[in-house]
């Protein structure tokens, strides 16, 4: 069985938890976020070469972007950064988050979920902003509400994990 540890990071209110809620196997309740600061879920992704179990460490969003619980990111095989399209500052904070995560986990595959694409009309992002985000990892527009892009995002992460095993 192939398992991969993937962390979901993002500042408070970007919709990380909503994103995983309907698409992963959930065992632990939300209160872990407020107590332990992380909730662990599982997503099994079917690939051509077999299936990959993604063990998702859904880290609690904090107000301060550096304070994401670096010890939880340690050992991660991939990191999903979640940003809120309606709040530009969350997109800008991805850079800071990525710096902290990379320090803890190394240069692992990164996927960026630009969330709340159902509210794309309200987005305050320029195409340049989006391009800057895309430079930090494979970018997906997702919607936790409609489910748009979520499966594709996980599939891309799984593929990246299998295709390029981390060099550590």
């Amino acid at each position: 069985m192939i398992q991969k540890k993937v962390c979901m990071v993002g500042v408070f209110g970007t919709g990380k938890t909503s994103l995983v809620q309907q698409f992963v196997h959930t065992r632990f309740s939300e209160k872990y976020h407020s107590t332990v600061g992380v909730k662990i879920d599982r997503k099994v992704v079917e690939l051509k070469g077999g299936e990959v179990t993604i063990v998702l460490w859904d880290l609690a969003g904090r107000d301060k972007d550096e304070d994401i619980g670096a010890s939880y990111v340690r050992g991660a095989h991939g990191v999903i950064y979640v940003a809120d399209g309606t709040r530009k500052e969350t997109c800008e904070q991805v850079a800071d988050l990525q710096r902290v995560a990379t320090a803890a986990a190394g240069a692992v595959p990164a996927v960026i979920a630009l969330n709340k694409c159902d509210l794309v009309a309200d987005w305050a992002l320029s195409s340049a902003d989006e391009a800057a985000l895309a430079a930090r990892g494979t970018l997906f527009r997702t919607s936790a509400k409609s489910g748009e892009g979520v499966e594709a995002m996980f599939l891309a992460m799984a593929t990246a994990l299998i295709a390029s095993p981390e060099g550590a």
């Binding site: 599982r42 179990t53 010890s71």
Partner: peptide, 20 residues
């Protein structure tokens, strides 16, 4: 033992949390 993979992850997280 259902969800042993989640339990082991959570166990590690809790150990990290307690350690921190």
């Amino acid at each position: 033992v259902p969800d042993a993979d989640l339990v082991s992850g959570m166990l590690t997280a809790i150990r990290d949390f307690v350690g921190d």
